[in-house]
Amino acid sequence: MMSLPFVLFACAVGAAWMRQRGVSMGFWALGLIAMLVLFRFHVTEVLMIQL
């Protein structure tokens, strides 16, 4: 799940290489949003550590 933003960023690079600027910016924006959402879930997750 945490690899999803990086896959989207790779798609953005591929689209930029194919000279599809609008598609590239869309993939980049989706990757950024996915990274922020996943980071938010990760930061607010409660760790259940039992000693």
Rank of each mutant, 00 (worst) to 15 (best):
M1R: 08
M2K: 07
M2H: 06
L4R: 13
F6A: 06
F6V: 09
F6Q: 02
V7H: 02
L8P: 00
L8A: 04
F9Q: 02
A10K: 06
A10L: 14
C11I: 08
A12K: 05
V13A: 14
V13T: 05
A15N: 06
A16T: 04
A16K: 15
A16Q: 14
W17V: 07
W17R: 14
W17H: 10
Q20S: 01
G22E: 13
G22Y: 08
V23W: 15
V23M: 15
M25H: 05
G26Q: 11
G26D: 09
G26M: 14
F27S: 01
F27A: 04
A29T: 11
A29P: 01
A29V: 05
L30T: 01
L30G: 02
G31F: 02
L32V: 08
I33C: 12
I33Y: 09
I33S: 10
I33T: 10
I33F: 12
A34D: 03
V37K: 03
V37N: 05
V37W: 08
F39R: 12
R40A: 09
R40C: 00
F41S: 07
F41Y: 14
H42Q: 15
H42C: 04
V43I: 13
V43M: 14
V43R: 14
T44F: 15
T44K: 13
T44E: 15
V46W: 09
L47M: 12
L47S: 14
M48C: 03
M48A: 12
Q50N: 13
L51P: 05
L51W: 09
